[in-house]
Design a protein around this nucleic acid. Structure first.
Lengths: 153, 153
DNA sequence: TTGTTAGTTCATAAAAAAGAGAACTAAAAG
DNA sequence: CTTTTAGTTCTCTTTTTTATGAACTAACAA
């Protein structure tokens, strides 16, 4: 089975997206592949074939994706192969973590302020204001998520 | 002038924070340095001294930070040196961009859905739900920011 | 027991990123 | 002008990342 050029293009774009988050290229492409395949799953060697990468690269990538809870596998009775697929359910948590990651500058800025004398009031204030803004967002974000869940229940 | 070990430690932590966002190590350290210095500014060679890196590394890093609008410089009458400092005011916009970056998976997932047949309904639904969640966040986030600005005006 | 399949591990090659240091340039100072 | 200062650019080395291919292992199959 071959991928359409539309599928290939999406895989590359998703690859780049995850690569920019600090993952190695193959990880993103595997995610893309599993998103794009109709069955939404693939065996080890299918992944190898579709993406034309080496066994070891696939093995390492899958191990990583599994420890990151992004991928899991099932087996089928009487078959030795594993069928790998995305754990889409966990993505919302992943995204919340990503957001937390952005907001984590907050902690650093608090420490910066603690380490600074009160000498340069203007600058300190500037930092403080930004830091308050993040604190606000950090507190409101969970409320927003709650709101969403109430709307959709 | 020397940095205290507390200052050095904060610089490293801020360095790592920015490095993990995909910037090269020196960029983050320069940001950290400018956050930690009482004057909140430094000349080219002060940066070199404090961080003990080469001229070229400082030059490249500063150029980059300036094109990213993270740093600017002023000059003082009768002096040829430039005084580099952070553009803290723009950080809120930067952060909004970072958030947008996270939410951009949304667009990709829409394209994924468009490229998929209706064959695998379960999976499609799963993607669609996640995608709706992001769309919700993406719409609500600006409102949240507005709310903050109203509270603090 | 021997073979086969499915995947892992290890040693290394290839490519990319980060940074150093010297040569260079532009502008102001003497 | 010539010199000095401040910063830039270029070349090359070091380090890190990414991926390959071959050897290896575990489990089941014949």
């Amino acid at each position: 089975m071959k991928l359409t050029s539309e599928q290939q293009e999406i895989i590359e774009r998703i690859g780049v997206f995850f690569e920019r988050k600090g993952n190695q290229p193959i990880l993103g492409r595997i995610m893309g592949l599993l998103l794009v395949l109709e069955k939404a799953e693939a065996t080890f060697d299918e992944i190898q074939d579709y993406l034309s990468v080496s066994k070891s690269a696939v093995s390492n990538a899958l191990t990583l994706l599994q420890t990151q809870n992004k991928v899991e596998y099932t087996t089928k009775p009487g078959e030795r192969k594993r069928y790998f697929r995305l754990r889409v359910r966990s993505w919302r948590l992943d995204m919340q973590e990503d957001l937390e990651g952005i907001f984590r500058i907050n902690v650093l800025l608090k420490d910066v302020l603690a380490a600074r004398s009160s000498q340069n009031r203007d600058f300190n204030n500037c930092i403080f204001e930004f830091q308050s803004f993040i604190e606000f967002m950090r507190i409101e974000m969970p409320k927003l998520i709650e709101k969403y869940d109430q709307q959709n229940s």
